[in-house]
Simulated scan of single mutants.
Amino acid sequence: MENGKTIRIYLTDGSVAGIRHAEIINWTGQAISCPRNHLSTLADWVESTRPGVYFLFGINEENGLPTVYIGETENVYERLKQHIKNEEYFWQEVIFFTNKDENLTKAHIKYLESRLVDMAKIAGRYIVINANTPTCSTLPRSDIAAMEAFIRNQLVLLGAMGHRFLEPLTDIAVKPETIKNTTKNNQDNDLFYIHTKNAKAFATAQRTDEGMVILANSKALLVDGSSLSNKNKEIRDNLIEQGQLHLNSDYYVFTKDVLSASPSQAAAVVLGYSVNGREIWVNQNNQSLKTLEEESIKNGLA
């Protein structure tokens, strides 16, 4: 069994909207989250004067999508002041990581920056406004292992602070071509399919802790039905506008993985009309989500 972790988050003013200091017990790293309008307060934090990596979070004004800039610096607070002076208005929150024992060197943080930018782009959850992936430092093998462990802990704290942008939506490296078959790639208990009369397997999704992830290469029907809710119509329209649903002859194709809040929302986005997602999504054995959930509860596994 994987070892658990204990996280401690200190709210400096008793509010989750203010400055937060987060740490994992028995780890020398630390994270600090600060709203843009509280930035001057960091002048009193010695943690902000150390070398580290930082993330500037905001919303893209044109498409409303979450946006991040990833950087490294030998003095976090001084670098953040430069971002303010440069009139970079897109970001409203910064989270930065430094080390309590001051053992992060310039080479270490350059390595972290390069890896983190690459991970964020691959995950594809946020718009990454770094123009290029920075060059990765050459480190001794033991230091690389230490920095990879540092990154794993960063993922934990970033998730606890509301940002999972470094984590891929699914753990499926090779996306099924939405053809239901018996290959090893598709033998996954969390893979589900939607069928239509004109296609043996129309869409494929993976059930995750966050919801239903419609996998890239899945298809979607063209026409919105009268039963489609305004919210789900807006989701479909936004996916089309953002190029995540691409017109291909007589259907749309998902160009990337798309997270839906529920099985019914995922089904509505695929089909263009409202439907009970727990009944229409089925696994390799033609068992619906509803059937599997009922069996799980019956067997005391839920």
Rank of each mutant, 00 (worst) to 15 (best):
T196F: 02
N75G: 04
F150I: 01
T183H: 11
G243T: 04
T67N: 06
Y54W: 10
I297N: 00
A261P: 04
T98V: 14
T133N: 11
V253F: 04
Q82M: 06
S274F: 02
S114P: 04
K233G: 01
E74L: 08
V223T: 14
L191T: 03
Q154K: 07
E148A: 04
Y251K: 13
I144K: 13
K231Y: 08
N283P: 01
K256M: 09
N103W: 02
A203R: 03
R207W: 09
D209N: 07
G211F: 08
L221M: 06
T291Q: 15
L166I: 11
N63P: 02
E47I: 06
I214T: 00
N248A: 11
Q92V: 12
V282W: 07
L301P: 01
E293D: 11
A268D: 05
A267L: 00
D209L: 08
N37C: 10
I235C: 00
L228Q: 01
R207Q: 10
V270E: 06
F55P: 02
L39K: 06
K180A: 13
S296K: 15
D13R: 08
L155C: 15
I129C: 07
T98L: 06
L301M: 13
N286T: 00
C136T: 11
K184R: 14
Y126H: 15
L166M: 14
L221E: 04
D13K: 09
E177H: 10
P134C: 13
Y10T: 12
E88W: 14
V76W: 05
H21R: 08
F55G: 02
L247Q: 04
H163T: 06
K106H: 12
Y251V: 05
A201V: 07
A173H: 12
N153E: 08
A173V: 15
R115V: 13
K256G: 08
H21L: 09
N285A: 15
S137H: 02
G4F: 02
V156Y: 03
G124C: 12
T138W: 07
T28F: 05
P263D: 03
A22Q: 03
L191Y: 04
N238T: 14
D224S: 06
H195Q: 12
A146E: 07
E61G: 01
G162Q: 03
T12C: 04
E234L: 11
V258L: 08
Y69L: 04
V68F: 02
T28R: 10
L56Q: 10
F150M: 03
I235W: 01
A173L: 14
G124E: 11
K197Y: 11
G277T: 09
W281P: 10
R8K: 08
I129W: 01
F57A: 10
Q82T: 14
T178Q: 09
K233R: 10
A203Y: 03
D44V: 06
I144G: 03
T196L: 02
A31Y: 05
I172V: 15
E234R: 14
E113I: 07
S226W: 03
L289A: 05
T182R: 14
V253H: 05
L139M: 13
V174T: 15
E113C: 11
V269I: 15
G71A: 02
R278F: 13
L80I: 09
G243H: 05
V275R: 05
V128G: 07
N283W: 01
F97I: 10
N186K: 09
K231P: 00
T208P: 07
A268G: 05
